[in-house]
């Protein structure tokens, strides 16, 4: 049994953080949270989480994008490779496109933004859990 996996949630909506924390704790993950990009960067450095769940639109507009690029451009291999799952509603019916659409109408991550996954808002808790487990290479019920 490996150590408990740590997940950093960077999201300005504290109620949403609380809800996601319940879900992730319930599935055996340890959760740390930050509510803006600078706080998120500091937490990432201090806590070295196994995965980051990131919101795009935060108090300073599209802080999430800035967060991703700041993190990925660092020398440390950890920051270049830590999996990031973006949770956002901005791709829905807006002109902001940060990844291409595949022909079957689904969304593919990674081509324009170096992240591993995308989840639409409103976040479906079960979907988040599935995605986190997939990114961490965990089978269902194999969190620890």
């Amino acid at each position: 049994m490996s150590a408990q996996r740590k997940i950093l949630i960077v999201e300005d909506d504290k109620d949403l953080v609380a809800a996601l924390q319940i879900v992730l704790n319930e599935h055996g993950f340890e959760v740390v949270a930050a509510h803006d990009a600078p706080g998120g960067l500091a937490k990432a450095e201090a806590e070295r989480p196994d995965l980051i769940v990131l919101d795009v639109m935060m108090p300073e507009a599209t802080e999430g994008f800035h967060f991703v690029w700041t993190l990925r451009l660092r020398e440390d291999e950890y920051f270049r490779s830590v999996p990031i799952i973006v949770i956002s509603a901005i791709h829905q019916r807006t002109e902001l496109r940060f990844y291409p659409e595949s022909a079957d109408g689904t969304y593919q991550a990674g081509e324009f933004l170096p992240v591993q996954g995308f989840i639409d808002k409103p976040v479906d808790p079960a979907e988040l859990v599935r995605e986190v487990q997939r990114q961490l290479g965990l089978a269902q019920g194999d969190e620890r």
């Binding site: 949403l16 879900v23 409103p122």
Partner: peptide
């Protein structure tokens, strides 16, 4: 309205899925 409504939806789903 979108942000708060989205959060409400997630919170209610957490309850519905028995996670709380």
């Amino acid at each position: 309205l979108r942000g708060p409504v989205g959060t409400i939806q997630t919170e209610l789903k957490v309850v519905l899925q028995g996670l709380a």
